[in-house]
Amino acid sequence: MLFDLNVPWPQTTFTAPPTAQAIVTLKNTLAMLEELGYTHVALNFIVEQGAKIPQNPNPIDLSLVGEFQTRLNLFTRVTLLIDDPSQGQGVAKLSSAFDIVAVCPRTEKALLLAVTNLDIDIITFNYAERLPCFLRHKTVGAAIEKGIKFEVVYSPAIAGPAGYADGVTVSTAALQSRRQFFNNAASIIRASRSRGLVLSSGAASPLQCRGSFDVCNLLILLDLDHSRCKAAMTEVPSKVVLSGRLRGQSYKQTVIVGQYESLRATIDAPKRRKLGDTPSGNLMKRQKELAKH
């Protein structure tokens, strides 16, 4: 099990559907991730807070990447960008339609709101820019205590917005983005005391994907130890998917329809069984046969 919970869905508004070209790129990215050994991938749709939420808030159409549905466990994720806490209405409306709900706070107030009030799975930041505020251990710790995980997206460190400007020197924007990534990632690792972190790619193209050991190497540089690195790509995101799916599929985490394993494995979802095929029916059948003899 290897998780990448952030592959951007190529669509910025609810209304405009993704172009055919963008879908091809997305498929290439998914194929690359599959090649690198990832088994669980979440497609991420990013929404501005002010956007008007339509009747069916999930624009992610998994049938567009249909061939991957039998090869990867695909989930849908929404990331809500929050500036002003007073307008934080969207989360409740969105949460039922997506598997995973994430929030990207852009002010300190929004971060506090996300930690205290919102029912979400992930808090993420834009790692190419400055963080909204200094991250205090108390705030981050409170979120982790509640079960909210913090995401570190590594694509800003390897992509950069522009790359080489004139073929020789790296553009200042790319340099800036990388510098910010290291600064931000180090501060989130410090504030969280290396706990409750999720590593994901945020790869918009196949070139921005990395294998799990490469990602580990990058984060070890930032003082995250090896076991925590590994957990941040396996166990922790597994918990994120579990809590997200339980929100939509269970009644308050007590009962779900079907098998528990199907929460995290969307490949070959089990069909409705006949009574004779279920363990209970099977055993009953055997008991009846025994009674006859």
Binding site: I256, R272, T278
Partner: peptide, 24 residues
């Protein structure tokens, strides 16, 4: 996990399967 047969209790009857999270 448990299964509830939809109508009677024959072997070839459709069931609804549910899972209970014991911890909750």
């Amino acid at each position: 996990s448990f299964a509830v047969p939809v109508v009677s209790e024959e072997e070839d009857v459709d069931t609804l399967e549910f899972s209970l999270l014991g911890s909750r």
